[in-house]
Design a protein around this nucleic acid. Sequence first.
DNA 1: TTTATATTTGCAACTTGGTTGCAATAGTAA
DNA 2: TTACTATTGCAACCAAGTTGCAAATATAAA
Lengths: 126, 126
Amino acid sequence: MAIKRQTATVKLLWEQFEESRDALSVVYLVKHLKVAMNKSTVYRILDRMEESGKLHSFIGKNGLKWYAKCQDCSSENHIDIHPHFQCNGCGKVECLTEEIKIPKISKHQIQLAQVLLLGKCETCLN
Amino acid sequence: MAIKRQTATVKLLWEQFEESRDALSVVYLVKHLKVAMNKSTVYRILDRMEESGKLHSFIGKNGLKWYAKCQDCSSENHIDIHPHFQCNGCGKVECLTEEIKIPKISKHQIQLAQVLLLGKCETCLN
DNA sequence: TTTATATTTGCAACTTGGTTGCAATAGTAA
DNA sequence: TTACTATTGCAACCAAGTTGCAAATATAAA
Ligand SMILES: [Mn+2]
Ligand SMILES: [Mn+2]
Ligand SMILES: [Zn+2]
Ligand SMILES: [Zn+2]
């Protein structure tokens, strides 16, 4: 179900995403939120925010679930598909704006491409 | 540690991969092997086969771990990097031979690209 | 402002994928 | 055959994510 009510917890979680283009893992949020919040609540709010077109989610390199802010999505269309970069040093995940050309695969219908680039971020390079 | 001894369990697991270019999830192997095998054993053997350059692993769409046969790898170099396709219908995962061009990202050093294409496989399209 | 209702939350218990320590077993080379 | 080390099974564990339910609360109607 999408977000129906603007609760304190919803606002608090949304603030975490508002500033940056970085993604946040659910595990991180459950552990490090200023105001502690039950983990089911965190999972459920993020889920609803995704359904509402506010956030998108993906799986990081260790199988953890990450969320980040959408740019121009709505409940009806989620168009914010892009590659993600995860730093092997510090673990940080960024949304990228670069387009990646996906080839046609014969006899397959491709509906979605998940691209995760792994490497060193700016901070960890220096 | 890499594979040191050719045990019955190692042989049995290897046979699962030998024929096809399809990947197999650990969960599937633990559940459906003809000769039942302890799950720690399965995890450990797959791990060693990867270290030996016989298999490569990646994370599928639900965060599960998958393995597939390498073509030309060894302990020393794992060069078998390619995109994977997972069917949204039947869940099957295939290794693809197509090359995907990864753009340079400024101020980032990219070490590895994980590409997972999701869609419908040949069987599920018909 | 008060009331009514549906949504949201916390909690505790659960499920599932994956890991670990250790004692028993079994390849392999001598 | 023996000796040595790698491998296995087992049981217990850990961590991420899910679920059912009763209590709390946002919001709209009265
Ligand atoms: Mn993103
Ligand atoms: Mn592959
Ligand atoms: Zn970094
Ligand atoms: Zn299919």
